[in-house]
């Protein structure tokens, strides 16, 4: 019950954020965005024709009602139809989001789980060669562009110049085997890049926890290393780690896969967003922006609840 009340309060507190994001995106995408008038008109339009199309598009109306209309769309989550495919935007989203999740999930999980594992190893052997090796590898991962990693793995694994094991591009989830064939190369590229950043971040968090006073206390009372790691270090580092993981979810769902999907031609929401950017498909863009903002508020709520579960000092009040 307490949780429910708290969540409600938090969601209400997230309204200014959603308002801000929608306001900015409305200003940039719609109000100052591309003028669609001439796309809808034939050659040599008359002044009346222009005026008619402009009023159809709502360009002749003042800012506030137009923004309120957008807000109404956000609340009902009805953004109308895509301008390029004329498909209902909500249908597009519900079709493409699962694809994006299927694409991003393996890399997301592996990148974080391996990141925490390598970070623990590096932190435990802090200053030794194993730490230097892992952190050197992380530094390399951080210095390589995601795009270069994608192309690199594609050359190595998918091209006739490399091992030629996987399809060059595309997407197919009809059988688990097909899914594996198509998801492997994007996942490898994602993990390779994510590991650099994650390992560094998690190691810093863990090292900081390792030097806390209570860790010294536990040592002074004869706590064996495994227990020390679990009870004093891992549990206390969970807060920043969970925060990072949860806050990356909105981007994974929406834009994180934009590059992957447009590069490999995978029909997820990233590809849809990219196409909408290129064609200036406003209904789709508005929906994507609003969805990200809402996911952000939810992520914030989730991390707060996680804090509560891990750290007794945080109360839900």
């Amino acid at each position: 019950m307490e949780i429910l009340q708290y969540s409600l309060r938090k969601l209400i507190a997230g309204i200014p954020l959603v308002l801000g994001v929608t306001l900015i995106s409305f200003l940039l995408i719609v109000y100052f965005g591309p003028d669609k008038t001439y796309d809808l008109l034939g050659k040599n339009p008359t002044a009346e024709e222009i005026a008619e199309v402009r009023s159809q598009l709502g360009y002749d109306r003042p800012f506030v009602p137009r923004y309120l209309e957008y807000l109404h769309e956000v609340i009902t989550f009805d953004f109308g139809n895509s301008e390029s495919t004329d498909e209902k935007v909500s249908t597009i989203l519900s079709r493409t989001i699962p694809v994006s999740i299927a694409l991003a999930l393996p890399g997301f999980i592996l990148g974080n789980v391996l990141g925490v594992m390598f970070a623990l190893l590096a932190a435990y052997f802090r200053g030794r060669w194993i730490d230097k090796f892992i952190m050197g590898f992380a530094a390399i991962g951080m210095s390589i562009s995601f795009l270069i990693a994608i192309i690199g793995f594609q050359i190595l694994l998918s091209s006739s110049d490399g091992l030629d094991l996987f399809p060059v591009r595309g997407w197919d989830t009809s059988t688990p085997l097909q899914y594996l064939r198509y998801v492997t190369v994007p996942t490898l590229a994602t993990v390779f890049i994510a590991l650099g950043y994650n390992t560094r971040f998690y190691r810093a968090v863990i090292v900081e926890e390792m030097t806390r006073d209570h860790v010294r206390t536990a040592k002074a009372f004869g706590t064996p290393p495994a227990r020390l790691f679990y009870r004093n270090i891992l549990k206390n580092s969970m807060i920043p780690i969970v925060t990072r993981i949860v806050f990356s979810i909105p981007f994974i769902v929406i834009s994180g896969s934009l590059l992957l999907e447009s590069y490999f031609g995978i029909p997820g929401i990233g590809k849809v967003t990219y196409d909408a950017i290129i064609t200036g498909d406003q209904p789709v863009l508005k929906a994507v922006v609003a969805l990200t903002a809402i996911l952000f508020v939810v992520a914030q709520l989730l991390t707060d609840i996680c804090y509560r579960a891990v750290d007794p000092r945080v109360s839900l009040k």
Binding site: R212, D213, H214, R216, T217, K219, A220, G222, N236
Partner: peptide, 27 residues
């Protein structure tokens, strides 16, 4: 190290300066 662990907290105990941070906050 394992032999020392048997001594720490049983034969010899130590208490520290900072009571605010010396205990694990999450237990």
């Amino acid at each position: 190290e394992p032999e020392l662990r048997k001594i720490r907290g049983s034969e010899i105990s130590m208490i520290f300066q900072e009571p605010m941070t010396a205990l694990n906050p999450v237990f």
